[in-house]
């Protein structure tokens, strides 16, 4: 990795942090509705893993799928941030045309196959994306990001079993932030180390620090290469922490200020920033400049686009329920003789 790459990755993470903070502000202004789950604190995981994947869409790029904390996974996959923000604003120009919202960012042009609000549901969908890729011999893999809480769903066990039996090229990325909504992992789950749970399915697995992007990238590269070359699943666990609540309605009453302060010392952006400054790759002034540019881009392009975009038309309320241009040969109607 070149110094320029490192600088770019730092800028990306700074951008993701500011993007999510700006979502928070827009939510408080009631510009964004529904549920809003922010990614702050976990940036090194999506950034580092997807840096090692083939992104950008097309028939060679890997498929990415996740839960409802999905803004940053979509953006790192290649979805324009302004389309994500417009989606949060419920606008027609949003990545899901305003029909999905924060929890359902979709962008098939970036091979970002969606955010899903049923915990654990993406496990089988991801295995299906991998089955499709394997069938078409496209060299693509599927990458499924989910939290530790999802591993207590039946779909986790069912899908690990089938992914293993059928040798599906899928990378399961477990972002273990130790809380399933507001319940600590020790109170909900028999083992804290999630990578140990897949040994019963004969799937290769490992656990790594999720707050250090360089550790994430090194581990992810090995895992991605394994999945692509061996055409087998891999389960990779990153220990991380979300700095905000589960969603906007979360007062974080289930964890202590001391615990939060300890984890904030391990802020993935600060860790990487300090390392790059020490190595002479960036200066404080460079970072200040980056932040100013990010602020400018978010306000003058992304927010402006979201604010100024049109609402979906009520006349199109039922569009997209079924195929809007079905072939009458398959659909009908049937011609009755009265």
């Amino acid at each position: 990795m070149t110094d320029a790459d490192k600088k770019r990755l730092l800028r990306e993470m700074l951008f993701y942090r500011r993007f999510e903070d700006r979502c928070f502000e827009a939510y408080m202004e009631r510009k964004i509705g529904g549920f809003l789950h922010l990614y702050s604190g976990q940036e090194a995981v999506a950034t580092g893993v997807l840096e090692m994947a083939k992104t950008g869409g097309g028939d060679k790029a890997d498929y990415v799928i996740t839960g409802y904390r999905d803004h940053i996974h979509a953006i790192k996959s290649g979805t324009p941030p302004r389309e994500v923000m417009a989606e949060l604003y419920g606008k027609e120009t949003g990545s899901s045309r305003g029909r999905g919202g924060s929890m359902h960012i979709f962008d098939p042009t970036a091979n970002f196959m969606g955010g899903y609000a049923l915990v654990g549901q993406p496990f089988p969908l991801a295995a299906g994306l991998a089955l499709g890729a394997k069938h078409k011999k496209s060299g693509q893999i599927a990458i499924c990001f989910l939290g530790d809480g999802a591993n207590n769903q039946g779909t986790f066990h069912e899908t690990m079993n089938m992914a293993s039996v059928w040798n599906l090229p899928v990378l399961f990325v477990c972002e273990n932030n130790m809380y399933a909504i507001g319940t600590h992992i020790d109170r909900s789950t028999a083992v804290r180390d999630q990578y140990k749970r897949v040994c019963g399915y004969n799937i290769k697995a490992s656990q790594h620090d999720g707050m250090d992007i360089e550790v994430v990238m090194k581990a992810a590269k090995d895992a991605v290469d394994y999945v692509r070359n061996e055409q087998k699943p891999y389960f990779i666990e990153f220990i991380t922490y979300r700095f905000r609540g589960h969603s906007m309605s979360d007062a974080k009453g289930y964890r202590t200020k001391e615990e939060e302060a300890e984890w904030e010392k391990r802020d993935p952006i600060n860790i990487f920033k300090a390392r790059l400054i020490k190595a002479g790759i960036v200066t404080e002034a460079d970072i200040k400049k980056m932040q100013d540019e990010i602020q400018h881009e978010i306000e003058t392009d992304i927010i402006k686009f979201a604010e100024q975009s049109p609402e979906p038309s009520v006349a199109e309320l039922t569009k997209y329920v079924l195929d809007d241009n079905p072939n009458p040969r398959w659909i009908g109607p049937l011609q009755n003789k009265y």
């Binding site: 949003g94 990545s95 899901s96 045309r97 305003g98 029909r99 999905g100 359902h104 979709f106 962008d107 098939p108 196959m113 969606g114 569009k319 997209y320 329920v321 079924l322 195929d323 809007d324």
Partner: peptide, 9 residues
């Protein structure tokens, strides 16, 4: 999925 992706998937 079709609906919540705005007809894209």
């Amino acid at each position: 999925i079709r609906y919540m992706s705005g007809g894209r998937v």
